[in-house]
């Protein structure tokens, strides 16, 4: 786990979480990074179990999962994946077998990195890759063609900054612009329509950098996923 920043102190954050939980304002998420094929059966068993208890949260009903107007008797579930190739090759068939929609969090610069240097890009930008390389000599990242196909099949997308960026209170504006506006443009060009969800590396929430919060709204992002919260921005 990396360095987590809070906009306030421990007690303030804890109090906000306790208030939100007690009001029943909870989203259920399962985070995956790499999903290698040698763990396929493990993932399949997990989603077989999830399918008995949870309903899929889709891009169409995300708002209702967020705002408390969710109507399914089962709680909603968001499987969050982090854009690597094996998410498509291994996890996607499992999700679709059990009726779930994947939510792919994409650092927008990553898909355009040429295959030869994708591993070193991943290492330099704290992007997890599997312990065992299942694609030696080949790309390890989801392509934009795959992303468009997935979006067309009803799966969700979020912008994970441009370079998998770790927001700090003093991040300068020109860097913020690239990590937010350029990323929003690349997501729109890559998928075919605007993406409304944003998430920083290490999950900074609003208040860590108020200039970034304002720029996220300016760029059209409606939700910020952070370590402990999903915050509606607009």
């Amino acid at each position: 786990m990396g360095e987590l920043l809070l906009p306030g102190g421990f007690d303030e954050t804890l109090a906000a979480l306790v208030r939100g939980l007690s009001a029943g304002r909870v989203l259920r998420v399962v985070n995956f990074h790499a999903t290698p094929s040698y763990r396929r059966e493990e993932y399949r068993r997990q989603f077989e179990a999830y399918a008995r208890l949870f309903a899929p949260i889709t891009p169409q009903d995300f708002d209702s999962a967020f705002d408390g107007t969710w109507t399914d008797a089962r709680p909603g579930l968001m499987p969050v994946l982090f854009r690597v190739r094996d998410n498509v090759d291994v996890m996607l068939p499992i999700l679709e077998e059990f009726g779930f929609k994947g939510w792919f969090f994409v650092p927008s610069a990553f898909p355009a990195v040429v295959p030869d240097v994708q591993r070193s890009y991943a290492k330099a930008h704290k992007l997890h890759v599997p312990a065992r390389d299942e694609y030696p000599g080949e790309r390890i990242v989801m392509t934009w063609d795959e992303a468009r196909d997935l979006a067309g099949r009803g799966h969700g997308f979020a912008c994970h900054s441009r370079s998998h960026f770790d927001l700090r209170p003093d991040t300068p504006d020109h860097v913020l612009w690239d990590e937010i506006h350029t990323a929003a443009n690349e997501m729109r060009a890559g998928i075919g329509w605007p993406v409304e969800i944003f998430c920083w590396l290490h999950g900074a929430e609003t208040g860590v950098n108020p200039r970034a919060d304002e720029m996220l709204r300016e760029a059209g992002f409606r939700y910020l996923f952070s370590n402990f919260k999903v915050q509606r921005l607009a």
Partner: peptide, 9 residues
Amino acid sequence: GVPMFLVAE
């Protein structure tokens, strides 16, 4: 896979 609860705010 790591399950998490996120508070909606």
